[in-house]
Design a protein around this nucleic acid. Structure first.
Lengths: 116, 116
DNA sequence: ATTTGACTTAGAGCGCACTCGAAGGGTGAA
DNA sequence: TTCACCCTTCGAGTGCGCTCTAAGTCAAAT
């Protein structure tokens, strides 16, 4: 599929897709006879996963590291799992923090209600 | 209290405190006889609240708007409450999103466990 | 044959939220 | 009094994650 279709389906812009490829997040996207990118379904699945990592706050540099390990093959599975477990802890902490802060917001909003 | 003490207690750097003052987030911090900043307890409370807004992802521009309304006094209470209610919704959505993404991470990690 | 429009690359630019540097002033200890 | 060290303002610099531009290629439509 074309870069525009891939952009549509991944929710990323064509610019961002090229950028991700340039920095090594996506490896070896196919090219058609005109030299244009031709995305496969597997690329889309990988992009979806990358997007999860991004929206959960993983820095691009870490994602690059993960992508690099993935390219190296099966023997890096443990290290990749460890990365994800560490990241999962950070996400859990973030959820906990946001949940706490939400209470502060609730209290503040209640105090405004009291005033009106 | 001095800017260093305020930095210590707020968890922000002295640089950031000056920056926040410059852009109008903190208004009229007192000065001592040498022209040095002299923070009051009320400044610290306000900073703590600002920090909650920041860590929950409110953009600086919105925080400035909120600070400006606060300076205008009691008649802006409704608008401030509305801002906070809107922000609270965004925080709730973010928590929901992170919670969903956490499941994806769990699944991925499980699949790695299956391989080892 | 020419125009349109999407694609390619490499590199520059942008917005956000700081973060730092330069130049100078005040205070307190040796 | 000299040194050390903190403070002041203001403007410039930084890091991140894109986002866009320029210059050129290619294919299809007119």
């Amino acid at each position: 599929m074309t870069i525009q279709e891939a952009a549509q389906r991944s929710g990323l812009s064509a610019h961002t897709l090229r950028y991700y490829e340039r920095i090594g997040l996506i490896h070896s996207v196919g090219r058609n006879s005109s030299g244009h990118r031709d995305y496969a379904e597997s690329d889309l699945q990988w992009l979806d996963f990358l997007t999860k990592l991004r929206t959960t706050g993983m820095p691009i540099a870490d994602m690059c590291r993960y992508a690099e390990l993935r390219r190296k093959g099966e023997e890096t599975a443990d290290e990749r799992r460890e990365m994800l477990e560490l990241h999962r802890e950070r996400v859990r902490s973030r959820i906990a923090e946001l949940t706490q802060d939400l209470k502060v917001l609730d209290t503040k909003i209640d105090s405004y209600r009291g005033l009106s």
